[in-house]
Design a protein around this nucleic acid. Sequence first.
DNA 1: CCATAAGCAGACAGACTTGTCTGTAAAGTG
DNA 2: CACTTTACAGACAAGTCTGTCTGCTTATGG
Lengths: 185, 185
Amino acid sequence: MRKPNAKDRILETAGELFFQRGYSGVGINEIIEKAGTAKASFYQHFPSKESLCEAWLQDMHDRSSVHHGELLASGLPPQEMAAACFTRLADFLKAGDFRGCPYSNTGAVSDENCFGIVKLIRVHKESTRIFFRKIASLAIPDEGRAATIGDRLFLLYSGATAEAQNLKCLWPVEIAGEAAVELLT
Amino acid sequence: MRKPNAKDRILETAGELFFQRGYSGVGINEIIEKAGTAKASFYQHFPSKESLCEAWLQDMHDRSSVHHGELLASGLPPQEMAAACFTRLADFLKAGDFRGCPYSNTGAVSDENCFGIVKLIRVHKESTRIFFRKIASLAIPDEGRAATIGDRLFLLYSGATAEAQNLKCLWPVEIAGEAAVELLT
DNA sequence: CCATAAGCAGACAGACTTGTCTGTAAAGTG
DNA sequence: CACTTTACAGACAAGTCTGTCTGCTTATGG
């Protein structure tokens, strides 16, 4: 097995734990234990737990930006782009370790004092909104109408993510996916 | 000012605090202090903090059931029923103390061991879904199609709630409200 | 008047939390 | 070899949390 440096190990371990049990449900001690590192090493790389959370959110955002870029450059018809998003979400759900949108979950336990965290959530959500607007603009000539439809896709995606988690079932993603395709035709 | 018994005072105080800062962000000590009661009194009425949370969720669900019933019995056209839901949500947002869906927020910090809490969240969400399906069935003759549209209303409502909180702005509610009315015409 | 119930006050236990600190060991570099 | 960087090990502080406990006060109903 590979053995990257301590910082990467911490970030990777924290990412898995935060994703599965939420930011507030995981302590530093568990992270460093599972990452096989020492507390002093942790605080050498991250000044606080909050900054680790910010690094995690930033990391996820970077990955999702790459994925969004690839999808937009794929040349697929816009309906299939949107469908791919919901299929991907459904696959996550079927994999079993899905716990809802990590950004929303983190926001639910962050007060207004956590400026960095709140800002990263906003940046990611706004960027996802733009992504769906771009998809909509490929299918809808009217610029204003495309923006509105893009926002609706975004809200359907968010609602499907939230309620699939709350109800622990798949239908919200399927229904939202169908609605998204309909909105684009 | 009235002075109801300790149990009601605790439930009311906890409701406000849970709503504003989340279940995990509020401790027993703060609740009893703000409610003007003693810890022993608290544990005489509630065996645990978790059971207080369940009572809170149940209380909110009962109120929302009443409201849903009133709206369905109002005789308004279905488009206006749906619009009223989103207007109500917008009013909450403008009031300033909105912190997102309390059920989703509580679910984000409850692990699978909290059976009672998870179940209450599911019951409420499923009941809200039924509510929107009933609205849809008033506007759409085809039964299957009405169910699908009802589910879409539900997902739009959920997405609007979540993203209005994440982005701290009003447009998700407005966009979702418009989309809901369009879906019903 | 008195007994029972309800509530208040707050110490306390035990288990967590984040973050600091001291000290040691290993590995790469001039 | 010497030096610096990096990481490991873990005690410790200071605070949080839930939940239990003892004792005191007040109110109500027979």
